[in-house]
Design a protein around this nucleic acid. Sequence first.
DNA 1: GCGGCGGGCTGATATGGATCAGCATCCCCC
DNA 2: GGGGGATGCTGATCCATATCAGCCCGCCGC
Lengths: 250, 250
Amino acid sequence: MTEPNAGLPIQDSPFARKLSAFVRLSQTDLAVMSDLYRRRRVFPVGVDVIHQGQTDQCAYVLASGWACSYKILPEGTRQIVDFQIPGDFLGLRSVLFRTADHNVEPITPVHASEVTQRDLLAAFAETPRLATAVLWAASRDEAMVVEHLVDLGRRSATERMAHFLLELGARLRLVGMGDRTGYLCPLSQYLLADALGLSAVHVNRVLRELREEGLVTFQKGRVTFEDYDGLVTFAGFDRSYLDHEGPLLM
Amino acid sequence: MTEPNAGLPIQDSPFARKLSAFVRLSQTDLAVMSDLYRRRRVFPVGVDVIHQGQTDQCAYVLASGWACSYKILPEGTRQIVDFQIPGDFLGLRSVLFRTADHNVEPITPVHASEVTQRDLLAAFAETPRLATAVLWAASRDEAMVVEHLVDLGRRSATERMAHFLLELGARLRLVGMGDRTGYLCPLSQYLLADALGLSAVHVNRVLRELREEGLVTFQKGRVTFEDYDGLVTFAGFDRSYLDHEGPLLM
DNA sequence: GCGGCGGGCTGATATGGATCAGCATCCCCC
DNA sequence: GGGGGATGCTGATCCATATCAGCCCGCCGC
């Protein structure tokens, strides 16, 4: 397999693009970031990136591919907490805990850069602006989990799916992997079910319903928005927690 | 109203007690913390501490009383994301966003110390160890939200309630407000319903069920564990995400 | 060329929890 | 001392979603 975006200038990496939505990154920031990108690793499907209960994990920045973080329950079912796309951290939270409290598993083959606790703190010391940006990224991750929690607690299955597809679209657009018309999406209906707290059967029916309503189509690995504004209204989607209009910190 | 724990030495404050579960705090750390505690405010029930959509919010450290953070949905219902008890941050996440993405409302009268973004970054510069501790506290908050998400996604109403009561108990014990036999709890069944994604009616039935099973009793503002180990098993509760055995960082 | 398997799809039936309606108690305020 | 607003509690009914069962299709390995 060829290394995706190997020759990409650092400011065009998904990670830099995402952080740029929050702070304006200087040449120094970019150089330090470039350093973080050094230790590249590849995870094929089936090899966990982070394993629940394991100690002394390090974190990763996802360069290409899709992953998901999840928790396993005693009965054997699982709850997917979130999906990760290029530019996202994998296991940032678990760096601070003695043992990882969740799993991260690749959905497609994954290229990721290893970041140890030491690397991160060193980078922070060098450019505090980057520290702020990373803290922002972590806050954004938490905001997404909160929104996901609202999904599960108070939205119907159909609203939940609509909201989820919109959020994913907005995130992908931020790193240049989709536009207002839709995006490529490697998630199976089983994965959606594990994420949305539904059964796979019901995911199928909900997708059909959204398709028949003329709102979104999810077929053959592509999500196509047929009526974006209608979908936003239906889902009660407010993207303000995902970015700002233009960088905040200069 | 008299100021609760006004004369309390700083190392006995709930905030210090909680952070001590993670790092060993030096005299300097405690002094800087004492400084953060300076600007005290009081919020009676009915006055929001943080208001969704408002800009330039600051955060607070809760000194006494209970609060809850929640999101309002277009239809008028709400989802409570978490309850805050003494020692917890209020709105830490919203300091980094231009506008707050959630509400925080007192459940009982609340005493809290105001912390601005500037205060926080200044304190971090002074004692990096405190920065790590705060980052840990934030990670722990996120871990709790994640566990809450698993509650809503994959646990039955009864397991969910059991898990919730256990988690709350463990948190309260960490700040000295409860023990293995139980704790005082000012939450109404309506609040529980908004948090657990249930109807108030069903909350009532679930509590009855747990009582009749001889696991927990929640009556007259007190939660009493009748069979702690049984409850832990029933809920699949693993408290490892809430603390460590002894401080990690020396 | 065929068997196995993952994934999408669908109908029938079961069920957990919502919703609606109403009563009892306590407490606060007039 | 009486009225009204929270809060707790309970029964009856309804509905969203789970569960079970099975089919079809395309892909991969042998």
